Simulated assay, not measured.
Amino acid sequence: MDDLQHDIARNLKKIRLQKGLSLDQAATRTGVSKSMLAQIEREKSNPSISTLWKIATGLQISFSSFMEKEDTAIEKVVFKKLTPAIDDQEMYRVYSLFSFHPEKKFEIYSAHLAAGSFHHAEAHSGEEYLLVAAGAISLTVHGKTQVLETGDALHFVPNDVHDYTNNGAEEAVFFDLIYYPR
């Protein structure tokens, strides 16, 4: 059994029950079918990034809430042991480095976008802070396109759809800190 799939299943069920929602009510709020939610909770389905974002937005939780682990005083993240969330085309991978914690109000990801590929992200809450670690990406948000190269950083409010594009010949890697002010 995949550790990430197990964490997603456990956390989704815990969050849904904490909110006092039936599967039907959760399906209505998220736009994800009751059967898909049940399959995710039973570890019978490995949801895409888009599906997880729909659920997170509908339940008004952070994306990384699905990947939460136990709190520790020191947390070392060994990248090669992480399991990414992958988009439907397998061109975009997101690794949760530090999951959301209500007292800290942020989460940090390492995102990897294949050469010559594109990722469409739905609007969501919070503020994003991007730092390009390798390659280059174009980010289109609020009708404006920003080109970011290695070492460049950008802050934006993701309350509108936004698109990440890698027009380069190599994979682009960027860190994404999402801050939730409320």
Rank of each mutant, 00 (worst) to 15 (best):
A134W: 04
F106V: 00
D7L: 15
S117I: 02
S65G: 11
D152V: 12
A121H: 08
K34V: 01
L4E: 10
A85F: 13
V132I: 08
L113I: 00
W53F: 07
E128C: 02
N11P: 04
T83E: 15
S110A: 12
D87R: 12
P158L: 11
R29W: 13
A136C: 11
Q60W: 00
S33T: 11
S125G: 15
G58I: 00
F100H: 08
H6V: 06
S99E: 07
K14F: 02
K44G: 04
L130M: 04
A121W: 01
L37D: 08
L4C: 08
R29A: 15
H101L: 00
T150Q: 14
E103L: 04
S33A: 09
M36T: 05
S117W: 02
K34S: 01
N159Y: 09
N167R: 07
R29H: 14
I74R: 12
S64M: 01
Y129A: 03
K34N: 02
Q146F: 15
A136Q: 13
K69Q: 07
S138R: 06
A73P: 14
F100G: 05
I86A: 07
E103R: 04
H124A: 04
K105W: 01
D160K: 05
P84V: 04
L130Y: 06
T72P: 07
K80W: 06
N166R: 01
E122Q: 15
A56L: 09
K76D: 00
L59P: 11
M1S: 13
V78A: 09
A38G: 15
Q146I: 12
T145E: 02
R29L: 15
R29F: 14
S35F: 10
S65E: 10
E149M: 13
I49S: 03
K54D: 14
T72K: 03
Y180T: 11
S96L: 05
I137E: 02
M1L: 13
A134T: 07
S33R: 06
R93L: 02
S33H: 09
Q25G: 12
L131S: 11
H124G: 05
A111G: 05
L97M: 05
E103K: 05
A56T: 04
D176A: 12
Q89Y: 11
P102A: 06
S64Y: 03
T72L: 01
T140V: 05
S125C: 09
S48A: 07
P102K: 08
V78I: 15
S96P: 14
Q39V: 01
Q5N: 15
I40A: 10
N167W: 03
L4P: 12
Y179V: 08
A85Y: 12
A114Q: 02
H142G: 08
K69Y: 00
F79T: 00
T72W: 02
L17D: 02
I8W: 05
S62D: 09
S22N: 09
I86W: 04
T51N: 11
F98E: 00
A38N: 14
L148W: 10
L148T: 10
R16L: 03
H162M: 10
K19C: 09
A123F: 14
K19Q: 13
A85G: 15
A56M: 07
H120R: 11
A134C: 06
T83A: 12
A121T: 08
H155D: 03
G151W: 03
E70Y: 12
T83V: 15
F118P: 08
I74C: 12
T83R: 14
A172I: 04
E75C: 01
L59I: 01
L17V: 03
D7I: 09
L97G: 01
I61M: 13
V132P: 13
N159A: 09
